[in-house]
Amino acid sequence: MLAQSAVSTVQSITSATDLITSATDLNAEAARTIDIVLANDAHAAFVWGVLDRLLDEPNCSVSGVTASGFAAIQAAVFAYGLSVGGRSGARTALANFWRRVSHASMFDIDRTSLLRSMLEQSIELQTIRDENCPVKLRVVAVNARADAVKIFSDEQLSINVIVAAAAVPFLSPAIEIDGDLYWGDGDISQLPPAASIGACHRVVVSGKPSIFMARCPDRSFGATQCVTGCAPVHSIFDSHYRAGAPLLVRPWIDWGELTDIRDRGRQCAEDWLAADLSSTDERPAKDCRSQYT
């Protein structure tokens, strides 16, 4: 099975000590427990950088990832790597995936087949579906017939679902799932507010400075916290997203250019981590949000 090579790669670089340390970090009471939303317009290598920086932070744990567009593939790789190899495993899984992207882009083959092949080499689906997976993955795709957004999770997740989320409407063929056709570009603006579990923060990674979350109906102008305890929402966006957008349709993706965009994502995540997030819930907020770029 192709995924077995990815398992070996991740596990070979992760020592037993690192696995124990990572498990302790994930299960211990953390200063920041976050729920991540990866918007479809977020440049993928920028997303890589944000996730890579968050993995460096011992006092920051990720409870779930909701992803649309190409970011859905990265979210699956992130969840899989974290499950089998802890923080170091997730970091290595993401780097290995992007090496595959850079290499495979040299070949003139169907984009959908390319994405499917890279995904199958990078993850083992059942590991992500398992209830013991440290990150709950949700994938957003669009019904190509009804133009309705659907969120797939748990046993609904499949290779087809993740590839469909990454399929560009009208440029890539829609993917059949349970008798219906799906592709990407899902609008995540109407996702419900994140329930605050252990002072959870919701972090939206996007390509432009806007918040995609529906406003919490229970938070008023003067309220310090809403009745249902929704999570504060923060936005990390790439101010250079237009320059990076064409990368995945080029015949060659330069590794140096990819890592430059990754480093920009790391820096934006660094700015968010450096902020005093605990103060967000202490001051009146209309939209429960702050932005970092």
Rank of each mutant, 00 (worst) to 15 (best):
Asp110Ser: 05
Ala104Thr: 13
Glu120Val: 09
Ser153Gly: 07
Val135Ala: 08
Cys133Ala: 14
Val168Arg: 03
Ser172Phe: 13
Glu120Leu: 11
Asp147Thr: 09
Ala166Asp: 09
Arg145Leu: 10
Asp154Gln: 10
Val149Ile: 13
Ile128Gln: 10
Leu114Asn: 11
Ala144Met: 08
Leu125Gly: 03
Leu171Lys: 12
Val161Tyr: 06
Leu157Asn: 04
Met118Val: 02
Asp130Tyr: 09
Lys150Arg: 15
Asp108Phe: 02
Ala104Asn: 12
Asn143Glu: 13
Val139Ile: 15
Asp110Gly: 03
Leu115Asp: 11
Val135Ile: 15
Val139His: 01
Ser105His: 12
Ala164Arg: 06
Ala167Leu: 04
Ala141Lys: 11
Asn160Thr: 07
Asp154Ile: 04
Ala148Met: 12
Arg116Glu: 13
Thr112Arg: 02
Ile159Glu: 05
Glu131Gln: 12
Gln126His: 12
Asn160Arg: 10
Asp147His: 13
Val149Phe: 02
Lys150Ser: 11
Val140Leu: 14
Ser158Ile: 05
Ala144Tyr: 07
Ala165Phe: 08
Pro134Ala: 09
Ile162Thr: 09
Lys150Trp: 07
Arg138Tyr: 11
Ala174Gln: 00
Leu114Thr: 11
Ser153Met: 09
Ser153Leu: 06
Cys133His: 08
Val139Ala: 01
Asn143Cys: 15
Arg138Gly: 10
Ile123Glu: 03
Cys133Tyr: 08
Val139Asn: 00
Glu155Val: 07
Ile162Asn: 10
Gln156Asn: 11
Ala166His: 06
Ser122Leu: 08
Ala144Val: 09
Ala166Val: 09
Arg116Asp: 04
Leu157Phe: 05
Ala164Thr: 05
Val140Ser: 15
Arg111Thr: 00
Ile109Trp: 12
Ala148Phe: 07
Leu157Thr: 04
Ala104Asp: 13
Arg138Lys: 12
Met106Arg: 15
Ala148Thr: 13
Cys133Val: 07
Arg129Ile: 10
Ile109Met: 12
Ser122Arg: 03
Asn160Lys: 14
Ser153Asp: 12
Ala148Trp: 02
Ala174Lys: 01
Ser172Glu: 15
Val135Lys: 05
Arg116Thr: 13
Asp154Lys: 07
Asn143Ile: 10
Ala146Leu: 13
Pro173Cys: 00
Ala141Ser: 15
Gln121Leu: 10
Glu155Tyr: 02
Ala165Pro: 08
Gln121Lys: 14
Ala174Asn: 03
Phe152Thr: 07
Glu120Ser: 11
Val149Asp: 04
Ser117Ile: 02
Pro169Met: 00
Leu115Ser: 10
Ile109Cys: 06
Glu120Arg: 14
Val140Thr: 13
Ala166Cys: 08
Ala164Tyr: 08
Met106Trp: 12
Phe107Gln: 11
Met106Pro: 00
Ala174His: 02
Phe170Arg: 14
Asn132Asp: 11
Val142Ala: 04
Thr127Lys: 14
Glu155Asp: 14
